[in-house]
Simulated scan of single mutants.
Amino acid sequence: MYPETEFGTLNDHVEYEAMLQCLANGWLDASMLHWCQMYLYTLQNQDTRDIQVAFFNAQKITGEECNKNFASVKEHLVQVYKLHHNKKYFIAPFFHSMHWVLFIISPMEHKCWILDSVSVRGEKNKTDYPLSKAIEASFGGAFTWNMIKCKQQDGSWECGYLVIRNMFEFVISLQFSFPNKIWNDTTNVTPEEIGKLIENIMTRFFISVFDDNMRAIKLSLES
């Protein structure tokens, strides 16, 4: 998923608090979104279709990292691209100013699509996101930027859930017809939609985690 470091393959974990916050319609932290990225990466590796998606690590490209460690963000973008240079789209959940946004990046086409759940009332463009500067600096020049008409949030906490929802929709189905088929709905997400998403995501989470643990226990008993 990512290049190996001098310490070997990257391992990650989800904080208990992050899981509880997700179940309680709370604020989602980077570990929960990163788990969703890893889950989707594993899921698509089992798909027989021509998968065109790779992922940038949400924890390495935050707004704070872009402002304080710009060279490190560029290095991550370039190294992941080199590892998956045959992929057309790169997914990048981006956290900045207490808000989650989703970037869909095509380095080979120099195009980027941004899904921001406050973009309508905020009238945003690429200059509102420090990651946009890192993307252009990493991949050699100006990009075409597209603000997607996507679901909007009515409160202050729904952004992380919408980023997860949009990631799942893109990886599972939309990537195969994108950008001809694209989001086009700026209505506010409802509590019922958030609840359905949480049920879906947490069901996948528990099945994944406990299935892996049960397999490990079985192997331990058999050895």
Rank of each mutant, 00 (worst) to 15 (best):
K88G: 05
E15Y: 11
L131K: 02
Y129L: 02
Q59E: 15
S72A: 12
N184L: 04
Y2N: 10
S31R: 01
Q175S: 03
W35F: 03
N166P: 09
V163N: 02
N180C: 10
M98G: 13
V120F: 09
Q59H: 12
V80C: 06
G63A: 07
D47Y: 06
G8Y: 00
G122H: 09
V163Y: 01
N45S: 13
G195R: 09
I194A: 03
Q152I: 00
D128T: 04
M167S: 03
A134H: 04
L20M: 10
G160W: 02
E169W: 02
M38H: 00
D29M: 09
H110T: 11
T42V: 13
W27T: 06
K87I: 04
S119H: 05
L40Q: 02
P93K: 03
I148K: 06
I114T: 02
A58T: 05
N188F: 14
S117M: 06
E222M: 11
T187S: 12
Y129N: 03
E4G: 03
T186M: 10
H99W: 04
L20E: 14
V53F: 07
Q79D: 14
T5Y: 03
H84F: 07
E158Y: 06
I164V: 15
L197R: 01
C66V: 05
F7P: 08
Y89I: 02
I201D: 00
P191M: 00
N180R: 09
K218N: 13
W27S: 05
H34L: 04
E6I: 10
S72I: 07
R165I: 07
F56Q: 01
E158I: 02
H110G: 07
L102P: 01
A24E: 15
E222W: 10
D128W: 06
F178M: 05
T5Q: 10
L115F: 06
L174P: 08
A54Q: 03
I207Q: 14
M98K: 12
L10E: 15
N146R: 09
H85C: 14
N69Q: 12
L20K: 09
L219W: 11
Q46T: 12
F70W: 08
W145T: 00
E65S: 11
S173M: 14
K151N: 07
H34P: 04
H13W: 14
A137Q: 12
E15R: 11
V118H: 01
I91H: 04
Y129W: 06
M108T: 13
M1A: 10
F168M: 12
Y41S: 01
S177E: 15
M202Q: 08
N180E: 15
W145D: 06
N166Q: 14
K87M: 08
I217H: 09
Q21C: 11
P3K: 01
E136A: 01
K124V: 15
A92T: 00
